[in-house]
Design a protein around this nucleic acid. Structure first.
Length: 640
RNA sequence: GCCGGUGUAGCUCAAUGGUAGAGCGUCCGCCUUGUAAGCGGUUGGUUGGAGGUUCGAUUCCUCUCACCGGCUCCA
């Protein structure tokens, strides 16, 4: 029979020949390097038998799709090792994932990090034994029978829920697993791997089902890549905002105060103030009206808004004088009350209320995470009340605003998602349809590529989510824009149209930086604490060489301060080296050393964070240059 | 919330079923300093909290709180 080798012409092979033999016939040199094939575009093992006319394409190491294959094999090898070390272990599932692979087990005892080396060692043994992975096709009933005999009830459960009548198994040595494949032809082909961490995970992700033990690992083609990945993990740890927050004295959490609520220290507060100042300025420029609303509302208002029904588990309640109160988890109802204080005309719309609104949301204790996931946080929240016709344009403005702001803070890459109606939600299908359409149109008009995230909208409306990529390529949740036809109805909002008749407005809920706390954390990790000048809590430290230069140093500080620069004089009785080191460790952008020569010449010696050192710069020049860099919010903080 | 881990001085981290230690920091001296740690001394802890076992617990057990890695959820 004849099969087609993609890019390599046709090749004749015997009836029922394997993919590998076809590759060997067509490209004897490279074939042994293949780890799988695509047969008619579908991933398959090298051992797959071909049919006349099949199109075959080899998959080599490093090529797209190869990673999933060997990582999946790695997870089987790990499972085999775990079964050997923990007799009686039950296997759940073990897929390849973005950064590696994992396998979920039910084990006779808890695994601990100390077990990982011995599991890894067993895995090395299995790789060295170079066991072939054999694919078997059998009926679902037979597979159920087999796994029942093996006591692998999770596999039995999976099989019982499957539709297919035929399933596939992979065997290596005496290890057998239910698996769709494909896999490496043998365990010896696995290259570089490492076990990384342990975790608990519910069977099928369902918290009502048993908690299993998950082991995470990763695998790569070559050692270099594995090491690069491990270095990436270290880099992420080095940038951890919780560590930097402590080292740079920015914020803290307190057991006495409860989890998930942030205390900003003076330096941390400066940065927050800079961020908020930027937001206020930009909102004013764009016609937003700043408002303040209280933190406690009567329960009734939250019934009107629907939060009591749809957001209850995230809300804090208490009671006084027989009245139910809620600590606000969102700002929208408050803004709507302001809207309703007088009759509104179509001439007033769009009406854009902006608030740095502090909200409290109950989060389960296990999900809290530094500044990234807290219970009390402040949003740069706005509600735009407008006519249906204005909606799309307003959405576009919001997106433009959001992208512009993120770029100012140094983020350049974004992924955009459109989230549609969730199961638990208010309002009729027609309203949802209209709202979703408006968001979609806005995205498409702006030519922004996006993906649909089905069922991930908020209970009152669909939303656009923007995720930002940080300096080391990680994605973070950023701005959201939500269209809402429901709350205007629930609050009975109205405006008078040109026809002098009442109409129902629509509204947009949107945030730009979103939760200030989270954004603060992302920013800290993005810059690894080395902020551009305009964001640095302390922009310059002046280091007098000896006590006799103190007055001069203070004079320089004064000249900088009046230009709005944040400057300190290090008047400690310490060596110049020590004072420079302290400024450097604190990641202060500029250190200005002043000694006899500088006093004499009315200059300073400028040292930037990269260690560059320029002597004899006139004070006037330093002041004006730094002030300009800060005012223009320039990204760099180097003295060119 | 659940699974696993961790919790010792302000910070980073040692140690032991028998009255807890280092480095850095703090403070006090000396040094008056030129681009990443000058020298000496001093201070510092109910070993997260409560209970239990024990002659004796920081160590072992139970409960609890917080944190870390995940599951799940979200700004």
């Amino acid at each position: 029979m004849r099969v087609k080798l993609v890019g390599d012409g046709d090749v004749d092979v015997p009836q029922g020949a394997s993919a590998m033999s076809a590759l060997l016939a067509a490209m004897p040199d490279r074939a042994p390097e293949a780890l799988a094939v695509r047969v008619n575009g579908e991933m398959a093992d090298l051992s797959r038998s071909l049919e006349d006319g099949d199109e075959v394409e080899p998959v080599f190491w490093g090529e797209e799709g190869s990673q999933d294959i060997y990582r999946h094999t790695a997870s089987h090898i790990m499972a085999q090792a775990v079964l050997e070390l923990f007799p009686g272990a039950k296997l759940a599932i073990g897929p390849a994932v973005e950064d590696g692979f994992y396998y979920d087990f039910e084990l006779p005892r808890a695994v601990s990090p100390e077990d990982l080396p011995s599991i890894e060692e067993r895995m090395v043994g299995i790789v060295e034994a170079d066991m072939p992975l054999q694919r078997e096709v059998l009926s679902r009933e037979a597979a159920v029978e087999l796994f029942r005999e093996l006591g692998q009830q999770y596999k039995v459960e999976l099989l019982e829920e499957m539709e297919e009548e035929e399933v596939t198994l992979y065997r290596q040595g005496d290890f057998v697993d239910l698996c769709r494949g494909p896999h490496l032809p043998s365990t010896g082909r696995l290259r570089h791997f490492k076990l990384l961490s342990l975790a608990g995970a519910y069977w099928r992700g369902d918290e009502k089902r048993p908690m299993l033990q998950r082991i995470y690992g990763t695998a790569f083609d070559d050692e270099e890549e594995l090491e690069r990945y491990l270095r990436f993990r270290e880099e992420a740890e080095r940038r951890d905002h919780r560590r930097l927050g402590k080292e740079l004295d920015l914020f803290s959490f307190h057991e006495e105060a409860g989890p998930g609520v942030v205390f900003y220290h003076p330096k941390g507060a400066v940065l927050r103030e800079v961020i908020e100042g930027y937001l206020k300025e930009e909102h004013r420029k764009r016609g937003y009206l700043m408002v303040y609303t209280p933190h406690l509302f009567r329960g009734q208002l939250w019934h009107t808004s629907g939060h009591m029904d749809y957001y209850r588990e995230n809300m804090y309640f208490f009671e006084k004088e027989g009245m139910e109160y809620v600590v606000k988890p969102m700002n929208c109802p408050g803004h709507l009350l302001i809207y309703k204080t007088r009759p509104r005309s179509y001439r007033d719309l769009p009406l854009k209320y902006f608030e740095l609104g502090t909200v409290y949301r109950y989060e389960r204790s296990g999900v809290l995470h530094g500044l990234m996931r807290v219970r009390g946080f402040t949003q740069d929240d706005a509600h735009i009340i407008c006519t249906e016709e204005q909606l799309e344009e307003q959405v576009r403005d919001c997106l433009e605003f959001a992208f512009h702001s993120l770029r100012t803070f140094g983020f350049e890459e974004f992924d955009v998602y459109l989230s549609t109606r969730p199961e638990k939600s208010v309002g009729g299908d027609e309203l949802w349809e209209k709202a979703t359409r408006a968001l979609k149109d806005a995205l498409e008009d702006m030519g922004i590529p996006y993906e649909i995230d089905p069922g991930e909208g908020v209970f009152y409306g669909p939303k656009i989510d923007v995720k930002l990529k940080d300096a080391i390529g990680r994605s973070w949740q950023g701005p959201t824009v939500q269209a809402d036809f429901n709350l205007p109805e629930r609050f009975d909002l109205a405006y008078t149209g040109p026809d002098n008749r009442p109409h129902r407005p629509v509204m947009i809920h949107r945030v730009v930086l979103a939760g200030i706390e989270r954004f603060y954390g992302v920013l800290l990790e993005h810059y690894a604490g080395e902020f551009p000048l305009w964001l640095s809590p302390v922009q310059a430290v002046i280091v007098p060489v000896a006590d006799r230069h103190l007055d001069y140093a203070r004079g320089v500080m004064e000249r900088m301060s009046v230009e709005g620069l944040r400057v300190e004089v290090d008047d400690d009785r310490q060596t110049v080296n020590m004072k420079i080191r302290r400024a450097q460790v604190q990641k202060v952008p500029f250190t200005l050393v002043v000694g006899d020569r500088e006093v004499e010449e009315e200059t300073v010696s400028v040292r930037d964070r990269t260690g560059r050192d320029v002597r004899g710069v006139p004070v006037a020049e330093v002041v004006s240059r730094l002030a300009a860099i800060a005012r223009e919010r320039r990204a760099d903080a180097a003295w060119e």
